[in-house]
Design a protein around this nucleic acid. Structure first.
Lengths: 210, 210
DNA sequence: GAGGAATGTGAACGCTGAACACATAATTGC
DNA sequence: GCAATTATGTGTTCAGCGTTCACATTCCTC
C-alpha cells in the first residue's frame, strides 16, 4: 500500500499504539492528544474521528496496558514446569509465578503500570478484559482442586493475594520502599506473606533468609 | 487585622490549605495554580513568590495529605484500650487499628488518598514526615516487645503489612473491587491475612465469617 | 460515473502554567 | 523620622493544551 496517502488506514490502532509507546516512557502525563496525533503523522483534529475525546483514548491505552499485564502473568504461569508426583506444588508455583510476574511488570514498566491503574474512580469495573483478576482466580481454583487451598479460604483468597501483590507493586513503582530494604527481598517477602496468609506450603526453591 | 490589605500575610499556608481543600474534592487534577490563587484571593503570579512552580506546590499538598493519613493512624492507635492482663493483645489491636485507619482514610477521602501518593517516581523518599511507615514500625516494635511477633519476622513484617494495606486501599479507591465482594469484608480479609502472614493471634472481636 | 459517507486539514477558542516588568507594602539603616 | 532596600502582589503576555468548526479529500455504494 502507498505510504503517502490522505487516509491513514487504521488511525484508531495507530493512536493506541502511539499512546502505549508514550505511556511506556512518560506515564499517564505523556498521553497528549497533539503528541499522539503527530506520532501517527496526522493533525490533532483527526483524533476526533476515532475517539470522542482524549479521556476515551487514554482509557483505551490504560485498558491495553492492563491487558499487557495480564498477558505477562499468563506467560509466566505457562512456563512453570509440572512436578511429576505432586500436582499441588505446581499450582503453588503457578500462583507464585503470576504474583511475581505482576510485580516484575510493575518494576520493568513502571510508567506503563501507572497508566494501567490511573483511572480515578470512573473505571467501568474490571470485568471487561482477560484481567489479572481472572488469571489470579484461575490459579486459586487450581489450588483448591489440588487440595492445597482449603475451600473455606477460597472466597477471601483473591483479596489477600491481590492486595498484597498490587500494593507492593505500587510501592515499588512510586519508589516508596524505605532503606534498607531492597526490591528483591521485598518481593520475596510479599509473596511468602501471601502463601502464609493462605496457609500454603512453601516450596523449597522459594526459601528466603528468614 | 484588616481584611483588605495588599499583603496577604501568610499566602504560603493559605495556598497549601486551598490545595488540600481542592484535592479533597477533585484529587490531583484539581490542583490548579489559578484556582488555588483565586481561592486565596490573590492573582496567579503571586503564587511564584512562595513556590518555584506548580509542581512544588502540588508536592507540598501531597506531603500534607500523607501527614493527615499518618495522623489518622496515630489517632486510631491511641483509642485502643489496653487489656489488663494481656499487653500482647493490645499491641495486636493497635496494629489492626492503624491498618484499618489507613484503609478507612482511603475510603473516606479517596481523592485525598490519591493526592497523597500521586508522586510518580521523583518522590524524595518517605523519610521526611511522621509517616505511616514509622507509625507501622512502632506498632511492630511493640509486637516484638510483648512477644507477639517473633524477632525473626520483624524485618519483613512491615513489607507484608504495608503492601497488603496499601494495596487494598488502592483497590478500594480506584473502585476495582469486583463483584460480589463488599468493601468491609475485603478490609477484614486483608487485615486477617496480615495477622496470618505475621503469625499473630486473632483477637475474638476480629472474627470474620470464614 | 454520481452521490454520500468516512476521514483528514487548518484555523480558531478558552483554558492552563509560566515569565516579565511594574506597583505597593514592610523592613532596615542612618 | 526619612530614605533605601527587600518582600510581596498585579497585570500582561506567551506557548501549549484539548476542543470545535467549516472545509477538503478520499473511499464506498448504488
Amino acid at each position: 500500500m502507498p505510504v503517502d496517502r490522505y487516509h491513514h488506514g487504521n488511525l484508531h490502532a495507530a493512536l493506541l499504539q502511539a499512546g502505549l509507546n508514550a505511556a511506556r516512557v512518560g506515564g499517564p502525563a505523556a498521553l497528549q492528544l497533539r503528541e499522539l496525533a503527530a506520532a501517527s503523522g496526522v493533525s490533532p483534529s483527526a483524533v476526533y474521528r476515532h475517539f470522542p475525546d482524549m479521556a476515551h483514548l487514554s482509557a483505551e491505552v490504560s485498558r491495553s496496558a492492563r491487558e499487557a499485564l495480564a498477558k505477562a502473568m499468563l506467560n509466566a504461569a505457562a512456563t512453570v514446569v509440572e512436578e511429576p508426583g505432586d500436582a499441588g506444588i505446581g499450582a503453588i508455583r503457578r500462583l507464585h509465578a503470576i504474583g511475581r510476574a505482576y510485580i516484575d511488570f510493575a518494576e520493568r514498566e513502571p510508567q506503563l503500570f501507572d497508566t494501567a491503574f490511573m483511572t480515578a474512580g470512573a473505571a467501568p469495573s474490571c470485568a471487561d478484559d482477560p484481567s489479572a483478576w481472572e488469571v489470579l482466580n484461575a490459579a486459586l481454583d487450581a489450588l483448591v482442586t489440588t487440595g492445597e487451598l482449603h475451600a473455606s479460604r477460597r472466597h477471601e483468597a483473591p483479596l489477600i493475594a491481590w492486595s498484597a501483590v498490587h500494593g507492593m507493586s505500587g510501592v515499588l513503582v512510586r519508589k516508596m520502599l524505605p532503606e534498607p530494604y531492597r526490591p528483591d527481598e521485598a518481593i520475596s517477602a510479599t509473596l511468602a506473606g501471601v502463601r502464609d496468609a493462605l496457609h500454603l506450603r512453601h516450596p523449597p526453591e522459594f526459601a528466603v533468609a528468614r
